[in-house]
Amino acid sequence: YRKFLKSLIRKQPQDLLLVTGTGVSAAVAPGIPALCSWRSCLQAVIEAAEELEVLDPGDVAEFRKKVIKDGDLLVVAHDLIRKMSPRTGNTKPNFFQDCLMEVFDNLEHHIQNPVVLQSILRLMERGTMVLTTNYDNLLEIFGRQQGKPMESLDLKDKDKVLQWASGQIKYGVLHIHGLYTDPCGMVLDPSGYKEVTQDPEVLEVLQNLYQTKSFLFLGCGETLRDQIFQAVFLYTVKNKVDLEHYMLVLKENEDCFFKLQADMLLHGIKVVSYGDCFKQFPEYVQDLTAQICKQRSPGTSCVDCAERKSGEHGTDPPKPINQSD
């Protein structure tokens, strides 16, 4: 039996904003190595470039080394895109898109364990917003299979982003790095990060969310080191302390875990462990979602509560809500 932080499970779904990272995709489609991490995504792109013969063999060898050794994968990614783009410095047309499409082909056939996606959809149904650093659209594919009107958004479409931020696109998923099908919307080039965050209106709307919603990070080991995330949220929003954010992490090593916990608390983020093994992640998310969805919305009759009450107390009917409240 696991304990959950009361401050987290007592949140209403509509007060939460989920930030999903590679951990979610890795749990859902373990058969696609490119989904497991930033590094493995780049390695898969290099493989695809070699197979499609769109990168010189010498460059292939050099990039393979860089991906293993280099600390800053963003720079490696930028160089890789540049090698596959016109020499004029334009981003279109480029072979990078073909490599990504090769890597992420037929995603719908690779959904093996949709538990986490089911949980995310359950929260979305109740008003939780979703933002992702992932290039894949596994959540949207799965949601459509369940009959939900899913929509993938990226930061280029300003009007859509503003609609999403004001809660008008219930099943919208904002990809802050763009989507693999449109890699020019993908923010890989460090200069691209600046463009994304230069529109003051978009920036203000996104930062406002960080001050009005509790962010819950799922499968986001790398997100807090992500430059776009730092530029938009982490280092630019002042007075964050009024609101709590939460981050689920793997506790592989006690010292590292407690150090991360102390460091993140400075940013107003409570770090919580889902277990000491990645296999525990989907079940934890499922249980956590069930706890959050049990909460009764203030002043509304809630189907879940009614069902639970009649289940708990045998025949007790749910109490009527006083409409004058």
Rank of each mutant, 00 (worst) to 15 (best):
V187K: 02
T212H: 13
I176V: 15
H177G: 04
F95K: 14
P114C: 07
L179R: 12
V116D: 06
E195F: 09
V130I: 11
P114I: 03
L100R: 00
S191L: 09
Q112P: 01
M129C: 09
L218E: 05
E108W: 00
G219H: 07
M84V: 05
I169N: 12
L117K: 03
R126E: 15
R82W: 03
Q112F: 07
E204K: 15
Q163C: 13
D199K: 02
M129P: 04
P190D: 10
H175G: 06
L80W: 06
D98L: 05
V161Q: 01
S214P: 00
R144G: 12
G185E: 14
I111W: 01
P190C: 06
E151Q: 15
C220Q: 06
V202K: 10
L206I: 04
Y135G: 09
D189N: 15
V205E: 12
H177I: 05
D182R: 15
Y193K: 15
R87A: 07
L121V: 06
P190F: 00
E125C: 08
D98V: 00
S166F: 04
N208Y: 07
L100T: 08
L100M: 13
T128P: 05
I81N: 05
C220H: 06
F217I: 10
G147Q: 02
Q198E: 11
P190G: 10
T91Y: 11
F96I: 11
K158T: 13
R122D: 12
F95C: 08
L206P: 07
H110N: 13
D157I: 01
K156Q: 13
I81Q: 13
E201W: 03
Q211I: 04
Q168S: 15
P93R: 11
K213F: 12
T91F: 12
T181V: 14
I141S: 03
Y180C: 07
P183L: 03
L174W: 06
V202A: 00
S119G: 08
K92M: 13
G127S: 11
L179H: 14
F217H: 07
Q146W: 02
F215P: 08
S119W: 00
T223R: 03
